[in-house]
Each structure stands twice: as C-alpha cells, then as structure tokens.
C-alpha cells in the first residue's frame, strides 16, 4: 500500500498544495456553502432566525408576489439568451467568416469589431443611455434627420422596447468576443481541407455549412456555454441602464436584479431578506450549473477531432 510519508517529496507536495487548497476552501467553497445554508433559515432583517427547511424556496417559486416576479425575471433571461444567441453569437460567426475570408479592410475591421469588448460595461451602459436619450440621443436624432421621425421612440421607457434596447447594447458591446473565438477556430482549419473543397464546389454556402461550421464546433461550444452563463447572470448592463427595479414596471427585470433587490433591498422597497435572496441565488446557481453541464456534454459530442 502506497504511503504518503511526510518526508522529502511527499512533504514538498503537501506544502505546495496546502495553501492553494486552503485559499479555495476559504474564499470559494465556504461562501458558496454559506449561501446555501442561508437559504434554509428565516431572517429578521439581518438576524438569522429559525431553520425553516425549504420554505424560502417555496416562497420564491410559488407564493405571490414573489412567484410572478420570479417568472417574469426568468422569462426575460430566456429572451435575453435566445436574442443574444442570434444577435451576438450569430452575428459574431458571420463577422468572423467575413474577417477570415480577408475581405477588403479586414485588418481594420478585426480591431474595430473587438474594440467595444475592451470597454467596461459601465462605460457601455452610460454610452448607450446617451445614444438612446429621447431628446438628444444620437439614435432619435438620426432617425429624425433621415426623415423617419415616427421611429424615434423613448426606447428605455416602453415595455416593448426597453429590454430589446438592453439586448442590443449588450450585443454591440460583446459581439467581438464570439467573433474572435470563431475566427481563431476558422484559422485552425487546415489548408488541405479547404483546397479539397475548392475542387468540389465554388458555393460559399456549402463551404460554410459542410466544412466551416462543423469544424469550428469547439469554438461554438465555448461561446454558447459562456453566453448561457452570461445571460442568466446578466446584471451590470440592466443595473446601469434600467436600474434595480427593472424599469419600466419590471419589463427589464432579470434574475440578477431581482436577487439583489430581494437580498439587499433597494431604495424603494426598504425590505432586506437574506433568506429569500439566498434561495434565489441557490436556484440560479443550480439551474445554470445543471443546464450548462448538459449543453457542454451535448456540444462536446458533436465536435470533430481533426
């Protein structure tokens, strides 16, 4: 039976592994476990009360008004995920393809597409708030200038446009990221394969669907999973552009804002409930972890080794 003796090599391994393990345990495992534990207690303000089992989970899922708030926020996260899948990852793929084909000005565009990704979300949020300003915003001004004044809208004030304005701003900000990942994937496709295709067909469509798309599957896995996690943890942009309440009247509310409001209160609610907040956090975490694992396994299965 092998024994880990605390001399020589064994000692070295122990000494080197212990600090990072302690670090991970203290700063990652402990907070997560603590948040899990919080969710099972009743809270009076900040004071931990009795153990209440699953009551907090029951309340956020099935008791009004929490149940409809949860549903509302969750629905918006789903909309955000699918919309960004098209507007961010879909457009990213097309941009990557265009850059890869080295259309004129590709070098300039490669920088231009990636530039917004470097900006912090705070800046992007404020920038788009200015762009969408109902009176002086560049969006409404341009629409009026080109003779389409009826299209000028109070974008962030209507339930029909507010969420889409945020989604659009997010896509503008982050589209460079999937572009870059897809581009890297495309550049790894061996030249021989492309030469072989060229003998068969001149059609770009066939080339994209039969060769490029299957061969960038590993890139797709990465951007899909990251988008999923990002879409369900979405917080900064709605917080900056719509505020904690998901203004107007909850039409931009997402799970991140809802969790924050519930756990820490906001200026207009005055109520703080760590128990319900933690229950929401646990539910969000479990949902993301479960679905992200399934997506990862599924998408991995379709990747082809070259």
């Amino acid at each position: 039976m092998p024994q880990l003796r605390l001399t020589g090599r064994g000692l070295w391994i122990t000494v080197l592994i212990a600090p990072p393990l302690a670090f991970v345990a203290l700063f990652i495992v402990y907070p997560i476990v603590a948040a899990f534990a919080y969710a099972f207690y009743d809270w009076q303000g900040l004071m931990r009360g009795d153990f209440v089992g699953l009551a907090n989970f029951h309340q956020v899922l099935f008791v009004e008004p929490y149940a409809s708030w949860t549903r509302n926020a969750f629905t918006h996260n789903i909309i955000v995920f699918f919309a960004l899948m098209v507007l961010q990852n879909g457009v990213g793929f097309i941009l990557a393809y265009a850059l890869w084909r080295e259309l004129p000005g590709a070098r300039f565009h490669r920088v231009a597409v990636f530039l917004p990704v470097v900006l912090s979300t705070i800046i992007v949020g404020y920038l788009w708030k200015l762009f969408l300003h109902p009176l002086f915003g560049v969006v409404n001004q341009s629409l009026k200038a080109v003779g389409l004044p009826f299209l000028a809208q109070p974008w962030l004030g209507q339930d029909t446009t507010a969420l889409w304005a945020l989604i659009f701003a997010n896509a503008w900000h982050m589209v460079g990221f999937p572009t870059l990942v897809f581009l890297a994937g495309m550049q790894r496709i061996p030249g021989e394969i492309l030469d072989a295709v060229r003998m068969e067909t001149e059609s770009e469509w066939v080339k994209i669907t039969k060769i490029v798309w299957p061969l960038v599957a590993p890139s797709a896995t990465v951007v899909f999973v990251l988008l999923f996690v990002g879409a369900f943890n979405w917080f900064e942009l709605p917080y900056i552009m719509a505020g904690l309440d998901g203004s107007p009247y909850g039409s931009t509310d997402v799970l991140g804002l809802y969790f924050y409001r519930t756990a820490f209160g906001n200026v207009s609610a005055g109520q703080q409930n760590f128990g319900l907040g933690s229950a929401l956090a646990v539910l969000i975490f479990v949902f993301i972890a479960a679905v992200a694992s399934v997506i990862t396994v599924r998408l991995r299965a379709r990747e082809i080794q070259i």
Partner: peptide, 12 residues
C-alpha cells in the same frame, strides 16, 4: 413633460 419623457432618466 418633455417629448419622450417616459424614456428620460433622472439625471437627464
């Protein structure tokens, strides 16, 4: 109120 005031935020 200003034109499009439902989209006008507090600082503006």
């Amino acid at each position: 109120f200003p034109e499009g005031f439902i989209g006008l935020d507090y600082p503006s």
